[in-house]
């Protein structure tokens, strides 16, 4: 290798090194939000059990304190509470598991329907009856304490077969 070629390669190598050195933090700062771990659920009080009637789902708003970058604010989410029997509840995250539209209760069909692409879910177990949703409605962990219903609100990745918390 001649002197000229050597200097050329050396300059290219130094350039590549410097480039990689500077690119790491710059690209890293951009990519980091995508590598964050899932946030844990929030336990929320949905009120006294008396207001839930057997066989008639009722929607409830859930207010979460969410940290959104440099803004900490209240985010509102929706759940559907289904009382199946006296002491048997299911609480669904209202987001359609297809792509996230909020499902609505259709009493005439006894089913939850997504307003967006025809997703239909069964009331008592959330199983997909029709449409593109890849998994049943997401049932949320819940408990009854002193006559009040609590739900552990959690969001999940949409559009995929598995229930992955985000």
């Amino acid at each position: 290798m001649g002197r000229r070629a050597f200097v050329g390669y050396a300059a290219a190598a130094m350039g590549a090194f410097l480039g990689a050195f500077l690119a790491t933090p710059i690209v890293g700062s951009f990519v980091s939000p995508a590598l964050k771990k899932a946030t844990p659920g929030h336990w929320k009080n949905l009120g006294t059990v008396g207001k839930f009637q057997i066989g008639t789902p009722k929607s409830e708003r859930v207010s979460l304190i969410k940290k959104d970058g440099w803004v900490t604010d209240v985010a509102t989410r929706l759940v559907w509470v289904v009382r199946l029997a006296d002491n048997d509840y299911v609480v669904y995250n209202a987001q359609c598991t297809h792509l996230g539209c909020l499902v609505e209760w259709h009493p005439e069909d006894k089913a939850f329907k997504s307003p967006c692409h025809g997703g239909v879910f069964k009331m008592d177990d959330g199983i997909v009856l029709a449409g593109p949703p890849p998994r049943p409605l997401d049932a949320l962990e819940h408990k009854i304490e002193k006559g009040e219903l609590w739900v552990n609100y959690q969001d999940f990745r949409l559009g995929v077969g598995e229930k992955v918390p985000i």
């Binding site: 790491t24 933090p25 710059i26 890293g28 700062s29 970058g69 440099w70 803004v71």
Partner: peptide, 16 residues
């Protein structure tokens, strides 16, 4: 607040 966020919370934010 967004500048504080960059400095304290974004990975490599203080370096950038």
């Amino acid at each position: 607040d967004s500048v504080l966020y960059i400095t304290n919370e974004v990975a490599f934010g203080s370096i950038v």
